[in-house]
Amino acid sequence: MSGVLVVREAGFAPVKGMRHLALRAVDLDVRGAVGNRAYCLVDVARARVLRTVQHPSLIAITARELDDGLALTLPTGETAYAPAAPAGETLRCDYWGRQVGLLLTEGPHAQLASDFLGTEVRLARAPRGGVVFADPVTVLTTASLEAVGMRAESARFRATLVVETDEPWVEDDWAGRLITVGGATLRVGGPVPRCAVVDHHPVTGVKDVRLLKRLVRERPTNRAGEPMFGVYATVVEPGRVDVTP
């Protein structure tokens, strides 16, 4: 079974955990959205990738990957911009229980982020898919967002794509289904478990709602008690996906 869906939003964060960018289009290949989580911040002393749920102020930093470098911008407007040149040092880090090889970089980004977060970090280039939790694409539906009153703040869920539907929660039955989005074809996987990141404002990172508790009451949960919202997907046919306003 297959279906063609209208894409209303698309986005990702070039640096894991930083502000989710709303984009006019994304290019999807077998490893997901090109440019998604190309970098991450690392606690070198602990050999650990920073997790957004433990450092929600990451959300307030805007990262943009440009042709000749990476720009990080704080809420104050202070910016670090330079080529994120590899330092030649590879560090194996823990990312949710698995080891991933990351290439540490030089430049002003680390100091800017360290001062803002209040903890010493380094910027590292990640292999494609290296700091992605499960399947590389996540999909939300407009009707489900409206059902929880979050259509205007969909960025809380940091989805790759938001697609148009009339009925909420129809995506719960999409497992295994092929869907067409723009020039790409996806195979839908399982549901996406949600954590406390959804309680934090998608621009400031400040905790301002109790959405997670509401989802626990209203949505199916996994064995860890995490509520399901949205679905994972893999890319079957790569292609460009344009947003329809």
Rank of each mutant, 00 (worst) to 15 (best):
R37C: 05
R128K: 08
V132W: 00
A33C: 12
F133V: 15
R48E: 15
P86Y: 09
V42Q: 13
R122N: 14
G35K: 03
E120F: 02
V30G: 00
Y81Q: 12
P86N: 09
P86K: 09
F116Q: 09
C93K: 00
E65F: 01
A38K: 03
G130Y: 09
I61K: 10
T52C: 07
A84C: 10
A71T: 13
T90C: 01
D115G: 02
R48L: 11
E65R: 10
L74I: 02
L117C: 13
A38C: 02
G101A: 15
A38M: 01
A113R: 00
R51D: 12
W96A: 08
A80I: 00
T62C: 02
T62K: 09
A38N: 05
Q111N: 13
H109L: 11
Q99S: 10
A60K: 01
A124K: 11
G130A: 07
L58T: 13
A80W: 01
C93W: 03
G35N: 07
I61H: 08
V30R: 13
A85Y: 00
A126R: 06
G77W: 08
D94N: 14
L66I: 05
A33K: 03
V49K: 07
T73V: 15
L91Q: 06
Q111R: 15
L50S: 11
D43N: 12
T52S: 07
L104I: 05
V34I: 14
T105I: 01
D43W: 11
R37F: 05
V100N: 04
